[in-house]
Design a binder for these strands. Structure first.
Lengths: 299, 299
DNA sequence: TCGGTCCATGAATCGCCCTCATAGCAGCAG
DNA sequence: CTGCTGCTATGAGGGCGATTCATGGACCGA
């Protein structure tokens, strides 16, 4: 109960096992051996008094307690990194802030919303090295990536319920309208099949659809919003898409506003509480907010 | 530049040196020796490439970089604690939350605002062991305690400017009026000397004083609000005090409302972003908010 | 100059963590 | 059933980092 002390190497071991799905692979990843991993995991489990991984012939899977431990481990490791970076760099404001910054974003945000923001960030804070990872906004989505410690900040669509998931912090950046998109010059676009994609959270548009007096002739599913747009542009169908996904729309499609009652969705950022206080994340959030107004209007 | 790995013992060493103000005392606190501390600090400084403490004959004082490192170290250590606790205990909600909870509060909050809240907390979460430390609300005050990692949550008077200091999170719990307090039955209380105390943030009352057409005959300073009240009750003078400080006022004093234009002050809680996500802190905040309305009315 | 308080330093030591080698276990193919 | 191929578990031994002990140096005040 006293010697519960988890060192960075132990934390890294937990993360590696969870990521690699097995002790042997984790050993390789850590540049160490399977035996070391086995010893370490057993030691940690003994210290905590909890079984963290279910061992099977196919490797190791985290138990519920193990999953919690891994998520915390990732965060603590990240904090240690940040601590080193912020201790070295002078005081925020008087000196350079730098280091890696892992962003998780859904496809259209990564393609159209982030680039100008990151450009400004590169100017104001050249030391920061952002990496953007595109994540499907289904299930836990980008917020899940952040909660699991795999990303520092996520760009997420915020649902109608809680603005951010419990245990995380964040804010809404912009509210964007959905619009009808169809092949340019088509005489009766509403007669075309509706193209939809898995990520498209129908909760935003459901109320609007219910109020409509027409239903689409057919519905086809595409891989993602980019594919949807490409199908529409080739004349195959029409779609109801958020403005952000229409940023790079080719001239072969026409975008029609849906009027006053059009559905909208909110896009925001999510981060962990401990990272929200760090200067790298703060810098990015500042640029995100700075781009807020223009983005909304430009949409 | 690669092997930068700070273990829990090293982090604890940093914290101990900062707290104790010297290597020798830190060694004692850690149950270890001065030599170990010296070696450890030197090693950390070499790893980080930064001098963390100024050594002098009087001991060791943190450099600016050292202060940052210490603050981060406290937070990381706390995160490790939380990690252990939340990994062991089942999922929040399905299992008991428990463990120590360090609260910093100014005097009157500790005496009158917290007790009923902690009582409810003890009922709803018997596993939590709160400790309350009374902190002078001057300089960094309770928020400083939280920022420095010496407390998990602080009860603070929120100034007119930012609701919470940068890097921290929190919210306002109640807004309470100031009132005139004087010896019971005194014919002309305003002719008595005004008793004031160092903690009393005059920014709340300054505007009100400026609008008054009388000034006190004299001003004397007392140690704290308790001493002020005691001086007033013994007939020595009168005072302008927030309601919270008047909760336990004896019958020998009389409280007079200051009317519609009376000054008020806001009282809130402050915590670090990473602790705000913790189940223990969340439990306390829930009880604090639950007590909000009744407290305002009862005041 | 002495006695006290600090921190610094070098060599010896202790303990932890890792490696190596090996064992155990489950599936699968013959 | 046997041998092969993934896994993980385990015990013995070694290396290296952390701690200690003993000492030295700097500074201050009496």
């Amino acid at each position: 109960m006293q010697s519960v002390d988890l060192g960075p190497q132990e934390l890294r071991t937990l993360v590696a096992v969870a990521d690699e799905g097995g002790f042997s692979a984790a050993g390789v990843r850590l540049g160490s051996t399977q035996s070391a991993v086995s010893h370490a995991v057993r030691g940690i489990e003994r210290k905590l008094g909890v079984v963290l991984f279910e061992r099977g012939r196919y490797g190791a899977r985290p138990t519920p307690a193990g999953a919690r431990a891994v998520a915390h481990a990732r965060r603590v490791l990240r904090m240690l990194e940040v601590m080193v970076a912020e201790t070295r760099g002078g005081d925020e404001g008087t000196a350079v802030v730098g280091g890696p910054l892992r962003i998780a974003a859904f496809r259209s945000a990564a393609l159209y919303l982030l680039p100008p923001v990151l450009e400004r960030l590169a100017v104001s804070h050249p030391g920061i090295e952002p990496t953007v990872r595109v994540v499907r906004e289904v299930g836990p989505g980008t917020a899940g990536e952040v909660a699991e410690g795999r990303a520092d900040l996520g760009i997420a669509t915020v649902g109608t319920g809680a603005p951010v998931p419990p245990g995380l912090v964040g804010d809404v950046l912009l509210e964007e309208p959905y619009a009808l998109v169809h092949p340019v010059g088509h005489p009766a676009p509403r007669s075309l099949p509706l193209v939809d994609w898995a990520e498209n959270c129908s909760s935003h548009t459901r109320a609007w659809w219910a109020a409509q007096d027409w239903i689409p002739a057919a519905t086809v599913r595409a891989e993602d919003d980019g594919a949807v747009l490409s199908m529409v542009s080739s004349g195959f169908g029409m779609a109801i898409m958020p403005r952000l996904s229409l940023t790079g729309a080719p001239p072969s499609v026409e975008v029609t506003d849906l009027g006053a009652e059009r559905p909208t969705r909110k896009v925001g950022y999510v981060t962990t509480p401990e990272l929200a206080a760090t200067s790298v994340v703060r810098a990015l959030v500042r640029e995100l907010r700075a781009g807020r107004k223009p983005q909304v209007n430009a949409a």
